[in-house]
């Protein structure tokens, strides 16, 4: 965990600053260049629209050979995100590839907000609700977005 920061991280950080992705901001912590403060805007036409979701992203010692650790800090009602903010996303686990980047990971998370997948749930109760009564679940997700993601 030395502060000699790998060039790969420097390069990604520089690119995130100079070519930001629409609806996503990722800013390195002033004290720790491996820790990013992330904001993702709820995608249009999703129950999360209008919300501004805060996440934290940490690049472990063996990044990019290992995936970044990402977590929602803002509460969110989503079948693939549990109440601790942990995300069920294959590229963060076994489908990680060192060719993926902070940018691509955050884009995937943004896409997950547009397309919840209740068949691969992390939050069981939410997924069940999503399958049994989708319109009610979407209403709850909207409500949570209104209450927590502003």
């Amino acid at each position: 965990m030395s502060s000699g920061l790998p060039r790969r991280i420097i390069k990604e950080t520089q690119r995130l600053m100079t070519e930001p992705v629409s609806g996503i901001s990722a800013v390195p912590d002033e004290q720790n260049a491996r820790y990013f403060h992330v904001h993702i805007a709820g995608p249009k036409d999703s129950p999360f629209e209008g919300g501004n979701f805060k996440l934290e992203l940490f690049l472990p010692e063996d990044y990019p050979m290992a995936a970044p650790k990402v977590r929602f800090v803002t509460k969110i009602y989503h079948p693939n995100i549990d109440k601790l903010g942990r995300i069920c996303l294959d590229i963060l686990k076994d489908k990680w590839s060192p060719a993926l980047q902070i940018r691509t990971v955050l884009l995937s998370i943004q896409a997950l907000l547009s397309a919840p997948n209740p068949d691969d749930p992390l939050a069981n109760d939410v997924a069940e609700q999503w399958k049994m009564n989708e319109s009610k679940a979407i209403e709850t997700a909207r409500e949570w977005t209104r209450v927590h993601a502003h």
């Binding site: 990402v70 109440k83 601790l84 903010g85 963060l92 686990k93």
Partner: peptide, 23 residues
């Protein structure tokens, strides 16, 4: 901190989180 203390009233249930990256 992020692992132990998020969300009022909920202990992380280790068993159901097995295999998750953050876990």
């Amino acid at each position: 901190r992020s692992d132990s203390s998020y969300g009022h009233g909920n202990q992380p249930n280790i068993n159901s989180m097995g295999g998750d990256s953050a876990g």
